Amino acid sequence: MRILTFLYSFEPGGVERVALRLVRAWRAEGVDAPLFMGRADGAMREEMAADLAYEVPRQPFAIGWIETLWMIATLPRVIVRLRPDALFCAGNSYTIVALAMKLLLGRRCPPILAKISNDLERRDMIPPVRWLYRRWLHLHGAFIDHFIGMEHPMEGEITNAIPAAIGRISIIPDPALDEAQLVRLHHAVGSARNASAGGIRFAAIGRLAPQKNVALMLRAFACGAASLDSLTIYGDGPEHATLSALCRNLGIEDRVELAGHVPDPASRLPDFDVFLLSSDYEGVPAVIVEALAAGLPIIATRCSVSMAALTGHGALAHLIDTGDLQAFSAAIRDAGRLRQDRAASLAQARRFTVERASQAYLACFQAIRRPAPTRQNNFLSSN
């Protein structure tokens, strides 16, 4: 079986990180799993793909600003040449490419398995835009052959948004970690944290983009944190300058570090006391799984239909409504009282390992594959 995964770049993102982890796992299990990249740049390249073979087209100019159109233009030839048994559409932002492949290739397009990686309700949108978005989702049933949800509550969310998906949905907990990383995080916690003196050390991981509503987190920290508390945020993005200015305006620039992108930010979590998430919407946030593996108390918004199930129905996190500054501030103010059941936290995180997910994905690909003629393996990879 040949499974072709296509990604825009190595720019930091949970969707891309998980997809690269799956490709690596499939290859380790002997699956023919070519990887096609629209471009070879991005901060995750050295971390996630230093030894991972992939194909990338020659670029006549910088294509980052038209990466979707570039993928639509270059991917069909790769599909026709490789004749994969299935395409892996790694997240919501790639489904426009999946639609284009069905339209451009017709019967030559292999079955497409798509992971629903983000919230489908999108209550953050203004009504006209949300109406258009819902119509777009409704169309997915016509060109996606099978859907993957990342946690059980997503099945109802998917069928509500895409009625044609009924009977074509599998739930596979998102492989946010591998078993070795999970064990490292679990055992690294304790000594570093117990050595803490002074205030509470808060941490967050995420792209500095509107979806993450980091501004809410900063305002809540300014209102609720004690003078010795600190906050470190790993991640970069278009709002970096705006958020830096907000820190200065709130008078917290000496206690907040916008640390930027770092390799494997989850490995830093054992150095902290409490994990924060302020997103307006998410699918199943991988950073919450990482925080669970590290045994950190968690304060998070109800940014996903899956948040309750992901956090043991509130037993493993303090959940607040999205956008609720007062509740977020109060939770930060009372963070010193938070305690985490490390055994339960580890058991929950273990559901989300690539070792468990890999075989489940392969079973889904086997179920949707079509009989194919014998072909030569003509995948040429380059780094």
Results as ranks from 00 to 15, higher is better:
residue 36 F to S: 01
residue 78 V to T: 14
residue 269 L to D: 12
residue 125 M to W: 14
residue 237 G to L: 04
residue 135 R to F: 02
residue 126 I to H: 13
residue 298 I to V: 14
residue 183 V to D: 15
residue 238 P to W: 01
residue 285 P to L: 03
residue 370 R to I: 01
residue 299 I to M: 04
residue 125 M to R: 15
residue 192 A to E: 07
residue 224 G to F: 13
residue 256 V to C: 08
residue 357 A to R: 05
residue 177 L to N: 04
residue 309 A to E: 14
residue 108 R to S: 14
residue 292 L to K: 02
residue 308 A to T: 10
residue 125 M to V: 00
residue 357 A to W: 02
residue 48 M to Y: 08
residue 88 F to K: 02
residue 366 Q to T: 09
residue 23 V to T: 12
residue 50 A to G: 10
residue 11 E to C: 00
residue 99 L to A: 14
residue 182 L to P: 08
residue 146 H to Q: 08
residue 373 P to W: 07
residue 126 I to W: 13
residue 169 I to G: 07
residue 175 P to I: 01
residue 336 G to V: 13
residue 36 F to A: 11
residue 256 V to E: 07
residue 69 L to P: 01
residue 375 R to F: 14
residue 83 R to M: 10
residue 265 P to H: 10
residue 294 A to D: 06
residue 274 V to C: 09
residue 197 A to R: 15
residue 189 V to P: 00
residue 179 E to V: 14
residue 267 S to T: 15
residue 203 A to L: 09
residue 37 M to F: 07
residue 217 M to W: 06
residue 190 G to K: 07
residue 323 G to E: 03
residue 361 Y to R: 06
residue 380 L to V: 14
residue 98 A to T: 09
residue 93 S to E: 12
residue 71 M to I: 15
residue 11 E to M: 04
residue 122 R to V: 01
residue 13 G to Q: 02
residue 372 A to I: 09
residue 315 A to R: 15
residue 350 R to T: 12
residue 74 T to K: 15
residue 167 G to M: 10
residue 267 S to N: 13
residue 208 L to F: 06
residue 93 S to V: 09
residue 158 I to H: 02
residue 74 T to Y: 11
residue 277 L to M: 13
residue 111 P to N: 09
residue 312 G to L: 10
residue 87 L to C: 05
residue 189 V to R: 05
residue 7 L to Q: 04
residue 82 L to C: 00
residue 98 A to E: 03
residue 271 D to G: 13
residue 177 L to I: 03
residue 176 A to T: 07
residue 199 G to Y: 11
residue 352 F to L: 07
residue 256 V to F: 09
residue 182 L to A: 13
residue 9 S to C: 04
residue 290 E to R: 00
residue 114 A to C: 13
residue 127 P to R: 12
residue 277 L to W: 02
residue 318 H to P: 06
residue 301 T to F: 06
residue 73 A to W: 13
